[in-house]
Design a protein around this nucleic acid. Structure first.
Lengths: 155, 155
DNA sequence: CATAAGTCATTACCCTTGCTAAGTATTCCC
DNA sequence: GGGAATACTTAGCAAGGGTAATGACTTATG
């Protein structure tokens, strides 16, 4: 097999910063697709809904704008996700104590229960894959995860 | 700030395997959205199209099925992406030499040029972010990227 | 204190991109 | 040669992202 250009293998490409960027983008895209496809039939929540419940669980009640900014989504998209969850009774809209424009979103008891159950089922596949890695590889991911977070949060 | 439950910070959560799975999923989702949003107005290619051209550039001509499998997408989705790129003259469909069922997709000269130009622009943002990390953090990502790849490829 | 400007959430609408199901062409196997 | 399997495409649907415009409320200004 021959090529008309320098063969850009992933192994070489990842060494340069531009190559790392390309490879990282590919990996993230593919893994995300893989994870989205792993939607268990019992799971009532989409990945976006799960992320929203998770944000409320972790950070407590938040306004729509705060949630949208954290999840890197425009406010209308967040409104729609909230609507779905509110229809299911998983979150509640409350009025902001001092600013009537804002809407505070709060996790309900049912929402918390569904979050934990769904997350357990949904993480099953990924956890199993993680368990198949070496301890060292898991450690790399453990350290990489917050870095990926920070990249996503960057302006 | 108080919570009615044990506060699940990312720092604590990432230590367990299940926690790592959740956090990794969140990070991947957000970063992917962030990257997709970084679509420069000059860029004619979507992330999926860029990934396809990249696969052809890296691995040479491939059949539709091979491309779909590699990108973890169903064949019809790949067909559509190929249609878009073929309309733009970036890829060509060729007949397979020995199997009339298969369609071989090949990168055109124009496709290669567009790939490199688009990738340079698109990676600019991510490269800049990567440059803002410490050398050690970059190294973590460099080692994490192939692991993420493997996770995406797992059954 | 009245009004203009700004902010936050929502509504309405569109586009992209994934999927499944069904259809067509070709190859493989008996 | 004919039926089963394979490869791609077509058609249609749903999720989830976006922008633009509207409404409600707050803040700043004259």
């Amino acid at each position: 097999m021959t090529y008309a250009h320098d063969m850009p293998t992933p192994e070489k490409a990842v060494r340069t910063d531009a190559g790392l960027a390309s490879e990282l983008r590919l990996s993230v895209m593919r893994l995300r697709r893989r994870l989205a496809a792993e939607r268990h039939p019992d799971n009532p929540l989409s990945m976006g809904q799960l992320a929203l419940l998770g944000a409320l669980y972790r950070n407590g009640d938040q306004s729509v704008g705060e949630l949208a900014a954290r999840e890197r989504v425009q406010p209308p998209s967040m409104t729609r996700t909230i609507n779905c969850l509110a229809d299911g009774g998983y979150v509640e809209r409350r009025s902001h104590p001092s600013d009537g424009r804002q809407v505070v979103v709060a996790l309900t008891d049912e929402g918390r229960a569904v979050l934990l159950a769904d997350r357990a089922r949904r993480d099953e596949w990924l956890s199993r894959r993680l368990a198949g890695l070496s301890a060292e590889e898991r450690d790399v991911l453990r350290r990489a995860t917050p870095i990926l977070q920070r990249l996503a949060e960057a302006d």
